[in-house]
Amino acid sequence: MSDFFQAISDYSPYLWEGARVTLALSGGGAVVALVVAVVLGLCAISPVAVLRVGSRVIVEFFRGTSLVVQLFFLFYVFPLFGIDLPGMWCGIVGLGLNYGAYGSEVVRGSLNAVAKVQWESTTALSMSWPLAVRRVIWPQAWGLMLPGLNNLMVMLVKGTAVALLIGLHDLTYWVEVMRKDPEVGLWIAYGAGFLFYYLIALACSSGLRLLERRAQRRLGLAPSKTRTTRATAEAVA
């Protein structure tokens, strides 16, 4: 055990640097993904047919063509057209678009899951579509979508390891470097690696779980135990 902490403290500047890259990709990717998910999800239920079809096409495109391919487009193809994003931005945009498309399915599903009679009530009160969505439908869907978004957030954190493929030095990279150091070795290096990722994912997941509890309390519901794996599987397929 002392070897473990010795190795971690020896490598702490590198691990810190790697964690910084991983966290930046996770945080940046999550922000982009959330914006994409909300915009595409709302378009998907809007009364305007063009928006619905447009969002469908975009979502199916990003869901269907693998994260790595999209990332390579940003990293290898875009520079050929004069758009030369730094690796970090490629990662953030790539992760954001891909997980945003998955997230939009969760958002759409949750908005659709709000009882139809709630929509009818808003009509009976002459509320406009934007008003009804903002004040009545979204607040109810929010609690429903959080478990699904939570699962996707954990996947996004894991997805940041694609950084390796575009030459970024993230946590995974430094774990491999540690592993090659005979003083550290396989088990300590990967023990540290798994622990770091697990803690980051756990922190994100617990944070979102708190939000979920709060949302459910607001709706006067008991906290749910459902983990909505089915919805998540459907979103990422």
Binding site: V154, V157, K158, G159, T160, A161, V162, L164, L171, T172, V175, E176, R179, L186, Y190, G193, F194, Y197, Y198, A201, L202, S205
Partner: peptide
């Protein structure tokens, strides 16, 4: 199972190869 589910595939792939080498 939680740890496996919450850590990245690339890390696990590299881990598997490293074990194989060791």
């Amino acid at each position: 199972l939680d740890v496996i589910r919450m850590t990245p595939l690339p890390l696990q792939l590299l881990f598997a190869v490293a074990i194989f080498i060791s």
